Computed example of a mutant assay.
Amino acid sequence: MEEMIKVAHTLNYEYIGFTEHNPSQSQHSENQIISLLKPKKEAIDKINYSRVKKLLNGIFNGLEIDIKPNGELAIPEKALDLLDYGIASIHSSFRMSREEMTKRVLRALDHPKIKIFGHPTGRKLGQREGYELDWEAIFAFCLKHDKWLEINAWPDRLDLPDTLVREAVKNGVKMVICTDAHIKNQLSLMSYGVAVARKGWVEKKDIVNTLSYDKIVQELKGGEK
């Protein structure tokens, strides 16, 4: 974690968020999941008040959470209390109808701790097509409830695609550009996400993680009910 923070500092970042995938509910009890997530929160809290804190203004504790087929989040409610924010993403059951998939996504995004819809089309370039969604409904919900769409910079994803990025801009929906980095060298993938954003005619005001640390803290707090 500290190595990633040091690289973020060299990239002139003010802050960074750590959002690994949620522990599997099928393989862990509720108490086990909470026990797995607590050390990360404690580690981030410690870093935020240590000498490493001087490198960045702050570190955020996030989690990428699976959206179940019925729209529920694949994590206990108590575990969400440990997070600064959640990213809700689909990793299974891709062949649902457009209507069912849209309801599934909107139910997940309705949770106050969820701020971001991750790799929103679900596509993997050269591997699979994305699922179908009612994008007008998604955009309208995100705008009304202040939810953000991810532009995932991983080269196999580049998701949201530039065509939908453009539509998001037209609808006034905010986005975040994320690297999906698993190791420190992958933080450089940000340039791919920026390229997608530019193709979608994005301006700085459309991307939430261009905000200062203090402002993004306010945004995260403001999203909670």
Rank of each mutant, 00 (worst) to 15 (best):
Y131S: 10
K204R: 06
L106Q: 07
K221R: 10
P112Q: 05
S188L: 14
Q218W: 00
G172D: 09
R166G: 04
V202G: 02
K205T: 05
T163M: 09
P112S: 09
F141G: 01
D206C: 00
L220V: 15
K204S: 13
I151C: 06
K184H: 10
W148H: 08
A195C: 07
R198K: 15
D134K: 12
S191I: 09
S188R: 15
L149W: 06
R128C: 06
A140H: 03
H145G: 00
K144S: 01
L187D: 03
F117G: 13
I207L: 05
A181I: 06
L211A: 03
V165I: 14
N171A: 15
N152L: 11
D146F: 00
V105K: 04
G193T: 11
Q186M: 12
P120L: 13
E150S: 08
K103G: 08
I183Q: 13
P155I: 12
I216W: 02
I216H: 02
T102E: 05
K124W: 03
N152F: 07
N152H: 12
Y192C: 14
W135P: 01
I207Y: 01
V202S: 04
P112I: 05
E136H: 08
E132W: 02
L220D: 11
L158G: 10
D206V: 00
D110S: 15
I183S: 10
L158K: 13
G122V: 01
V105R: 03
L189C: 11
D206T: 00
P120E: 14
C142M: 11
I177F: 06
K184R: 08
I216R: 02
T179S: 14
V217S: 07
A140W: 00
N171Y: 08
D134H: 13
A108S: 07
K170L: 04
L143I: 01
H119N: 13
H119F: 05
L220Y: 12
N209K: 02
S212L: 08
P155H: 15
L106A: 04
R157D: 07
K144G: 00
V105M: 08
D146M: 00
L160N: 03
D162C: 02
R104M: 02
A153W: 06
K174G: 07
K174P: 01
L160C: 09
W148K: 05
L164I: 06
I207T: 03
G172R: 14
N185P: 01
L106T: 07
K124N: 11
K170A: 11
R107A: 03
T210M: 02
G200Q: 09
L133Q: 10
E167D: 09
D159M: 08
A137P: 09
R157N: 11
H182C: 14
W154H: 15
L164S: 04
N209A: 07
T163P: 01
R104I: 04
C178P: 00
L211S: 04
Y213E: 12
G200P: 05
K221C: 11
V169T: 06
E167V: 01
L149T: 12
S212A: 14
C178W: 01
C142A: 13
W154Y: 15
W135C: 04
F141R: 00
H182K: 14
D159R: 07
G200D: 07
W148D: 02
M175R: 11
K204W: 03
R198N: 10
F139A: 03
R198S: 09
K124S: 11
